[in-house]
């Protein structure tokens, strides 16, 4: 529930909030409550099922087992690394996209489609595409292997690449949305007062879109945390190296469902924790 809440907040919240009057639930058509209730139930009840069915007497033992902790550590490290990469490459990309209105339509549309495609692509297909580019026989991977003897697949960096591939669109869309809602007069004023382009961008633009960046980063991190298809296809699955929590949960399901449920609970706990913490900081940033 907090996930959808903060997501919509990230889109609209970066606009000057003071001018919009608050919408009161009392004035909504009553009929909206029915589909809204069904929708919320569809999203929340499966998670409730997971929590209720969890083998609580064994949770501590299973969650603290070496294999689980290894998978958790790997997921956190790779998730943070890919979120960092998303920020480094995604913010500039979003900035340029937000300023691309004057470009020829076809260029703009192709660029936008390219950036958005990982959102709609089945992750496994994304993993295969990554293999064809960066694998041992890939377009870039083969020359890299010949030159350095290093191949990306089956390494932890490959997990980070796969996660970055699937999660960067979330950051780009969140940041671009924030940029488009920005009041450009502040940047103009900075420029008139003699600020360099970089200074205006780093001191005016970035702080103003900080909530959008934070929301995008959290979406990136949680998406990276849950990444399965592209990771197992591109990076493989080896405990402690490439076997992240979702992969461990999937394999666990084949032999010991209890372990899988506990792994899923762990994932859920981390994701909900992150989303809740965002919500607070988020409203703090808006005030």
């Amino acid at each position: 529930m907090s996930g959808t809440g903060s997501r919509s907040a990230s889109r609209t919240g970066s606009r000057p909030a003071s001018r919009t009057a608050r919408l009161s639930a009392r004035r909504l058509p009553r009929i909206l409550w029915v589909p809204a209730g069904i929708g919320a139930a569809l999203l929340i009840l499966p998670l409730a099922g997971l929590v209720i069915r969890a083998p609580w007497d064994r949770v501590a033992e299973l969650a603290l087992s070496q294999g689980t902790l290894e998978a958790l550590r790997l997921s956190l490290v790779t998730g943070l690394a890919s979120t960092a990469l998303c920020l480094i490459f995604g913010i500039p990309l979003a900035t340029i996209l937000a300023a691309s209105d004057g470009w020829p339509g076809i260029v703009r549309r192709l660029l936008r489609a390219g950036v958005t495609v990982p959102l709609v692509l089945p992750p496994v297909v994304g993993g295969i595409a990554l293999l064809l580019l960066l694998g041992r026989r890939g377009l870039l991977g083969a020359p890299l292997l010949a030159a350095t003897g290093f191949a990306l697949p089956f390494t932890t960096p490959a997990v980070v690449v796969a996660q970055t591939f699937v999660s960067m669109p979330f950051l780009v869309l969140a940041v671009e949305g924030a940029l488009r809602g920005l009041d450009r007069r502040y940047e103009d004023a900075a420029a008139t007062l003699g600020a360099s382009r970089w200074r205006a961008f780093s001191r005016i633009t970035l702080p103003m879109i900080a909530p959008g960046i934070a929301a995008g980063a959290v979406l990136c991190f949680t998406r990276a945390l849950g990444e399965f298809g592209a990771t197992i296809t591109f990076a493989g699955s080896f405990p402690g190296v490439t076997q992240t929590l979702p992969i461990a949960a999937y394999l666990g399901l084949q032999s010991d469902p209890d372990t899988a449920i506990v792994l899923a609970l762990l994932l859920l706990a981390v994701a909900v924790g992150v989303l809740l913490s965002l919500r607070d900081r988020w409203t703090g940033a808006l005030r």
Binding site: F154, I232, G236, S237, F238, P239, T242, I247, L251
Partner: peptide, 8 residues
């Protein structure tokens, strides 16, 4: 065996 990946 020196396995690099355990596939699903």
């Amino acid at each position: 065996a020196s396995v690099d990946t355990y596939e699903q």
